[in-house]
Simulated scan of single mutants.
Amino acid sequence: MNDWRLDASKMVEEQLIPRNVRDMAVLRAMASVPRHLFVPRRYAEDAYIDRPLPIGDRQTISQPYIVARMTELLEARSGMKVLEIGTGSGYQSAILSFMGLQVWSVERIDFLAERARKRLSDLGFAVHVIHGDGRMGFADAAPYDRIIVTAASERVEPLWEEQLALEGRLVVPKDVTTGGQRLLVRRKEDRGCTDTWYDYCRFVPLLGGTVEFF
């Protein structure tokens, strides 16, 4: 790679700010985390362009805008506990960790979990990566102030709501009856949950169970 920081800054200036991503902590993280290290080497030159990229086993790293948008919708503050469903490459985890959040991330595919765990550790990001079924969340560290789901889900799993702290926020790309998905923010309040819908999007589906290749 040439100077990747120039590519990352250009990504922020040309892809994120024009689309109204305004949270400065999110913009700093997107400009500071080396996205090219989270994709296969053959795609490194394309890491900062406005598109998702394959990372193996039919999984993808989301386009930069979607990563930034979902992170902004979390409205997370440094020190909060965050559960991520779907570790994938580990890039979303790295963004959250850079922002000072305590991150637990669940990945169903063992080699992706192991690869992300090593990459994050090598780069100095303190993320707890768990090989498990994301539909179950991760009760051991609950409750979480925020939950982010990085695969398309047919529903908000009851266990996610159970593991979300009161006044917490959950962001998920949820299947909608008109086709495709939309970003849903669910807030957990004293009197129940309230939902707000945002961008249409496209994610790989959230699957149950675990996959083991080792």
Rank of each mutant, 00 (worst) to 15 (best):
F138A: 00
G209L: 02
D199F: 07
P54V: 15
S97M: 13
G79T: 08
I85N: 00
G124M: 09
E154N: 02
L183N: 04
P143N: 14
T196Q: 15
K118Y: 14
L159C: 01
Y43N: 07
T194G: 11
D122N: 07
L170M: 06
T87M: 15
E107P: 08
V129A: 10
G208K: 09
G56W: 15
P64E: 05
K118T: 08
S105E: 04
A25F: 11
L73I: 03
E157F: 00
R35V: 06
R19Q: 10
R77F: 13
V211F: 08
M80V: 01
G100F: 09
Q181L: 02
G134V: 00
V211N: 04
A142C: 15
R41K: 15
D199I: 07
V106E: 03
I147R: 02
F214N: 05
T178R: 10
Q181E: 03
R117S: 10
V127N: 07
I61R: 05
A151D: 08
L170W: 03
E84S: 07
V21D: 04
E45Q: 10
R187V: 10
F214C: 08
L207F: 02
A76S: 09
L83S: 05
V129E: 06
E72V: 03
F138G: 00
T150G: 04
E162N: 03
M70L: 15
L166F: 04
A94F: 01
I61V: 09
P52H: 15
P173Q: 14
G137W: 00
K81Q: 13
D46A: 10
I130N: 02
Y65V: 11
R58F: 12
R117V: 03
R5F: 11
H131I: 09
A113Y: 09
G88R: 04
I148C: 12
